[in-house]
């Protein structure tokens, strides 16, 4: 078995246990979409786009009191180490649902009765934690589309690798580590909107991993805020203007 954590406590890519991979976030990258965002998180390269609110098709899905949300997480055939078959997989279908339900709590759907909001997450290159990166990007795309939201959603995983609790697992850690725990958080409201787990942890490790994932979400939120400020206010720093 490969050693995923060395004697100095550093991980296979040189990170400390509580460190995120390098992250790049950009808002409003697509011309045609109502809202869009791009994320690089480690080797993940993902585009999220939002169309809507728009008419619902087929009509029988219409909700008289709120919008419905359609979401698809989709991997390009060239996104994986061995080519992915273009046909939709069960994994993609589950993740589509998970992503949708991690974003729905942030959307004020009652403001858009009888409409549909489409969220498309396209994985151009995948690494560990692509669903989390997808949620993080999609929530920026929703804000970019100008849809009323209670909060931004930030998402990141923690897990257990070589017996140690670590933040933001990459592909090797995800495959060879013991436990993976993806989490999404609305940072201002303090509500968890995505939680999954696979692998065994003790109650103490559970607490440690969960809290580490939450702190990762808070770090990501700062980057999300910067990306939105850069796009909309031409500055990455929050500022207050006085006067008039």
């Amino acid at each position: 078995m490969t050693n995923l954590i060395d004697s100095a406590g550093l991980r296979n890519d040189g990170r400390k246990f509580n460190e995120l991979r390098p992250i790049k976030l950009e808002v409003g990258i697509l011309k045609n979409a109502d809202g869009s965002a791009y994320i690089e998180m480690g080797k993940n390269k993902i585009i999220a786009a939002v169309y809507g609110p728009k008419e619902v098709h087929p009509r029988h899905l219409v909700r008289p009191d709120r919008a419905i949300v359609k979401c698809r997480y989709h991997m390009a055939s060239f996104s994986t180490d061995t080519r992915k078959n273009p046909a939709p997989s069960r994994r993609e279908t589950e993740i589509s649902k998970i992503i949708r339900q991690s974003l729905e709590p942030a959307l004020i759907l009652e403001d858009y009765p009888r409409t549909a909001i489409h969220i498309w997450v396209e994985v151009l290159q995948s690494d560990g934690g692509s669903r989390c990166a997808g949620v993080t990007a999609a929530s920026l795309a929703l804000a970019d589309a100008g849809i009323n939201m209670r909060d931004i959603v930030a998402s990141c995983a923690a897990g257990k690798v070589d017996g140690k609790v670590v933040l933001d697992l990459d592909n090797i850690e995800d495959m060879e580590g013991e436990t993976d725990m993806p989490v999404a958080l609305m940072p201002n409201i303090g509500e968890v909107t995505l939680f999954q787990m696979d692998g065994i942890v003790s109650p103490a490790e559970f607490k440690e991993a969960f809290e580490l994932a939450l702190s990762g979400c808070q770090d990501l939120y700062k980057l999300q805020k910067q990306a939105l400020f850069t796009k909309y206010f031409g500055t990455d720093k929050p500022q207050v203007q006085e006067g008039e």
Partner: peptide, 15 residues
């Protein structure tokens, strides 16, 4: 003379 404070915000931010 009213005093208005202006602030850039994103969804979820406390105003």
């Amino acid at each position: 003379m009213s005093e208005i404070k202006r602030k850039y915000v994103i969804p979820g931010e406390l105003i």
